[in-house]
Design a binder for these strands. Structure first.
Length: 948
DNA sequence: CGCCCCCCCTAC
DNA sequence: TTAGGTAGGGGGGGCG
């Protein structure tokens, strides 16, 4: 039941490793490893292709003029001419938005005034960019028709609603004359609650613009009167759906899918192009074909990914400020998705800079020109995805503010729409998952901003999120060693010192690309977009709920079910899972672990739990249901069986899980590593999506909470883990001929740890498998208990805190030492503690030497108190602390790590809440350390004051 | 010192 | 104008 990918890497921070020790004076001795890499890239290219315009021009001094033709590689491949009467246009859509614009002649939809137009951006197989304007789709929502309503009243309803919405507008700067485009009668059913499948008359109200939906909904809710009907309040349905999602659901488009525009069905813009894309077309919304991401439509277009990093010359000890401190270098690397190396590597520098093999350097004498030229470069390269490290909250805002300060007027046009300025905005995002997070946003139409830091913050739990630490963790590679404090000095030196800075800057642009590739971010995010149906950008800018909403709407539409708008109000929490009281201790016998796979999804499927199957109070009598038609859950809630109506949520879950099975099967067969990656990303996305459905129903401040569902799910779960314990303990007994009475010593939510009383791992595995199968037969499919692993030996410290040697594939050798909840896996302890405990656990579990663990712990602590600890192992974090203080200045919150048993500083970055540890504590009297080993459990405990 | 609450982070 | 859930360990601080 993983809700989040975990940090699966090695224990961070502990290992000591030599850093390239270069001070100001010894930098020129030898090229760094990174420079050698760049050289190799250069040589590889020399071998494989003719060098057209680049050879011999590694350093280009640029005066007042800047030409985009400096390097022919910058441009996208030539776009062959397109004839809409004979050619279809096929592209992978990667971004989708809408705008208000004038209707285009010949396209469907309103012709008067401003109309909403969907815009899709994408790339063809040959790498050409596409901007596609989709016409004729208008926003709408539903309300139940009042009783006695007939089509004769439609006109009156529309006129009256139109008039109240107009009256409600405080200003009408767009000069809107028609707000309600249409009102139609449709047959729909409220998805919330089972009402005997009667479909009712609903009014589908189509508005002229998305932003008119909210006032229309509000006016109808507050009380609306028209014609002969009395004043009444109307409950709105689907009035809170983002317009992009509405369009995608209705046209069966999912994020990052392939779009086909059949010949004769679209128009090519030969003039009046508003975008920088190579093809710009118009199409009616019903004329485009969306291909489900299956078979050949799973492929990914050769997208251009740009990674960049900027350097600024700050003043001593002050965080750079864009109104004062100049941008001195911008390094950029561009790579095609699917290729292994960037084909553009360039640095824009202020003042001269010595050449770097394998990269192109453009030197500027004026900062203004540098910025101008880089913006031009970006528009020429025309990337689909822009990455970097913290570009969202640092590099882009800094560039925009700096360009504004220097009045570089053509700088802030970074999107693909010519006349749309990129503007900086503050965004406050708050969720329970991620806490409160203040972010900045910059609009960049048609390009996906894929800030690697944001990806890592969302998907990985790490001890440190600095680029250096992250690179070391995932790539075993680090940044070029340049202290921020000397950047300005390097800039003010000569072309060699600036060269050193440029190498550093290039590497900071290179590392995000490497990480993106290593973590398969682009592929995994695309697969998530395809599986859940939301645009790629939503995955980084929005929460979890929108993904479920998108799937729910798609499933509901097939059955003419509509989603109500519910007002969000927090209520009482409901009861969750059971954690079996642990029999704490050290077990020198094998402990078998049995798990329910996908527990909550399988409960929802097995018992048909859904909005559409929920029987609200009195429904059983009202609908005259027989006891065979419905079930009563452990929490007393009632749901109709699938024989009466199959729920939407179970359907969604079945689709997700069966698709996951297919993806895993295909993954097994597939030999192409690239396709394998896609499939693996897909199965992961499917698993995560299935797990988030339950959370959605329980999200009380959410789009459609239903506590009857979520509390029934956990209720079944509690019942099941109890039943499992009883079943196992009743069958595996001495009296039934087994070696011992089995005992469930622990269990959490969906698992039981069983002491079977056997001596070997293989026996435990054998009985474990048999027990899992036998217990499964007592539950409704697809609920299934599985044998997962054997721990041997096993140290059970407390609820949610244990460690053991993990056996699953082989009974002969353990795969790892598995630690749960202990200091070794927590990020709020300094690495020293984690390492100490880790070593102690190894001594206890692997060496089976508890006394050795005690001795080791005592030794470390005594070393610590006598200042004998070698702090070199903290060298990485030491550097990070300096970074924090120098970069964040007074903003960096530095406090004594009083609670930690080591001499550490704790440094918290205000922006990321990222905590790092470093160096000696200047006040050892605050130190609080002790170590004791409990006689019963052999557990290492740290508490209280030291024996000094 | 015990008790309660808050905070952080983890296990599911 | 936007946000997935509960259980639970363990440190630390305030309070009586």
């Amino acid at each position: 039941m993983d809700f989040k990918r975990r940090n699966g890497g090695p224990l961070a921070g502990g290992a000591s490793h030599a850093k390239r020790g270069k001070g100001m004076n010894d930098w020129e001795d030898s090229p760094s490893q990174f420079e050698e890499e760049l050289l190799m890239l250069d040589e590889a290219e020399m071998d494989s292709e003719e060098m057209e315009g680049q050879a011999g021009h590694d350093v280009i001094p640029v005066g007042d003029l800047f030409s985009a033709d400096l390097n022919p590689r910058w441009r996208r491949p030539h776009a062959p001419s397109l004839d809409p009467s004979s050619d279809t246009l096929v592209f992978q859509q990667i971004d989708l938005d809408y705008y208000l614009g004038s209707a285009v002649a010949g396209m469907p939809g309103q012709s008067q005034g401003k109309v909403p137009i969907i815009r899709m951006f994408g790339v063809t197989d040959s790498g050409n960019s596409v901007c596609c304007h989709v016409h004729g789709f208008a926003p709408y929502f539903y309300v139940p028709a009042p009783s006695g309503f007939t089509s004769a009243y439609l006109g009156e309803f529309q006129r009256e609603l139109n008039s109240v919405v107009l009256k409600d507008m405080r200003s009408n700067k767009d000069n809107i004359s028609v707000t309600v485009l249409a009102v139609d009668i449709t047959h729909k059913e409220n998805m919330y609650g089972y009402h005997g499948k009667q479909s009712l008359d609903f009014l589908q109200i189509t508005m002229a613009m998305p932003r008119l939906i909210a006032p229309a909904k509000r006016l109808l809710e507050q009380g609306f009167k028209f014609g002969p009907f009395p004043l009444q309040c109307y409950q709105a349905f689907e009035a809170n759906i983002d317009f992009e999602i509405r369009f995608m659901v209705d046209s069966d488009v999912v994020g990052c899918c392939w779009i086909e525009l059949p010949k004769d069905k679209y128009r090519l813009r030969e003039e009046k192009n508003v975008s920088l894309c190579q093809y710009e077309v118009d199409v009616g919304w019903t004329d485009l074909i969306s291909h489900p991401a299956e078979g050949k439509w799973q492929r990914i277009a050769p997208l251009r990914v740009l990674s960049f990093d900027i350097e600024c010359a700050g003043r001593k000890g002050i965080f750079p400020e864009p109104d004062k401190d100049p941008v001195i270098q911008i390094a950029s690397m561009v790579q095609r998705q699917g290729e292994t190396e960037p084909f553009i590597r360039t640095v824009f520098t202020l003042q001269t800079c010595a050449s770097i093999v394998g990269s192109q350097i453009l030197c500027f004498t004026q900062e203004k020109q540098l910025l101008q030229a880089w913006a031009e470069f970006l528009r020429t390269v025309d990337p689909d995805i822009i990455t970097g490290y913290n570009i969202q909250n640092f590099d882009f805002p800094y560039l925009l503010n700096r360009a504004a300060a220097l009045k570089v007027n053509y700088f802030p046009y970074l999107g693909r729409i010519r006349n749309t300025k990129s503007v900086l905005r503050d965004l406050n995002f708050q969720s329970k998952q991620m806490g409160r997070r203040e972010n900045k946003t910059i609009n960049m139409e048609g390009r996906v901003q894929f800030d690697l830091l944001q990806v890592l913050l969302r998907d990985y739990k790490l001890r440190s999120y600095s680029l250096n630490a992250v690179s070391f963790h995932f790539l075993q590679e680090q940044k070029e060693d340049v202290q921020h404090s000397i950047i300005t000095d390097l800039q003010n030196g000569n072309e060699q010192t600036r060269r050193r800075l440029a190498v550093y800057c290039l590497k900071d642009a290179y590392l995000p690309l490497r990480l993106l590739q290593k973590l398969m971010c682009v592929i995994n995010y695309m697969e998530m977009a395809r599986v859940t149906g939301v645009p790629l950008t939503y995955l980084l800018s929005r929460g979890q709920q929108i993904k479920v909403v998108s799937q729910l709407l798609r499933q509901a539409m097939k059955q003419d079910l509509v989603m109500p708008v519910v007002k969000t109000e927090g209520g009482e929490d409901y009861t969750g899972a059971t954690v079996i009281e642990p029999e704490k201790g050290y077990y020198s016998v094998p402990i078998a672990t049995l798990d329910f796979s996908s527990l909550y999804p399988s409960i929802m499927m097995a018992h048909n739990l859904c909005y559409t199957t929920l029987l609200q109070k009195g429904s059983v009598q009202k609908l005259g249901l027989s006891p065979d038609d419905f079930i009563k859950t452990p929490t007393g809630d009632q749901f109709v069986k699938s024989s009466v109506r199959k729920g939407l949520l179970p359907e969604i879950l079945e689709n997700l899980l069966s698709a996951r099975k297919r993806a895993k099967a295909e993954l097994k067969k597939e030999t192409d590593p690239f396709k394998k990656q896609v499939l693996d990303g897909r199965q992961l996305a499917l698993k995560i999506s299935a797990n988030s459905v339950y959370g959605f129903t329980g999200a009380q401040v959410g789009k459609l909470p239903c506590l009857e569902i979520s509390q029934s799910v956990t209720g079944f779960g509690r019942q099941m883990i109890e039943t499992t314990k009883k079943l196992v303990e009743s069958k595996y007994t001495l009296s039934n001929g087994y070696q011992a009475d089995a005992k469930v010593i622990y269990g959490d939510t969906d698992s039981v740890m069983v002491k079977l009383g056997v001596a070997t791992v293989s026996e435990a595995m054998e009985i474990g498998r048999e027990a899992a199968e036998w217990v499964s037969s007592h539950f409704t499919p697809p609920i299934k208990l599985e044998f997962e692993k054997v721990y041997y030996p096993y140290l059970l410290i407390n609820k949610k805190r244990y460690a053991g040697l993990y056996f699953s594939s082989s009974a002969d050798t353990h795969e790892k030492m598995d630690c749960k909840g202990i200091e070794t896996v927590r990020r709020d302890n300094c690495p020293l503690v984690a390492n100490l405990i880790n070593t102690c656990l190894q001594k206890i579990l692997i060496d089976r030497d508890p006394q050795g663990a005690v001795d080791h712990a005592k030794e470390v602590i005594s070393d610590l108190l006598c200042n004998r600890i070698d702090i070199s192992q903290l060298v990485i974090t030491k550097e990070l602390t300096r970074t924090a203080q120098e970069y964040a200045g007074k903003q960096a919150h530095v406090e004594l790590a009083e609670r930690t048993p080591s001499m550490c500083w704790r440094t918290t970055f205000p922006s990321t809440h990222n905590t790092t540890w470093s160096s000696s504590c200047p006040n050892p009297s605050k130190l609080r350390v002790s170590c004791s080993v409990s006689q019963h459990s052999h557990a290492i405990l740290f508490s209280g004051l030291p024996p000094y």
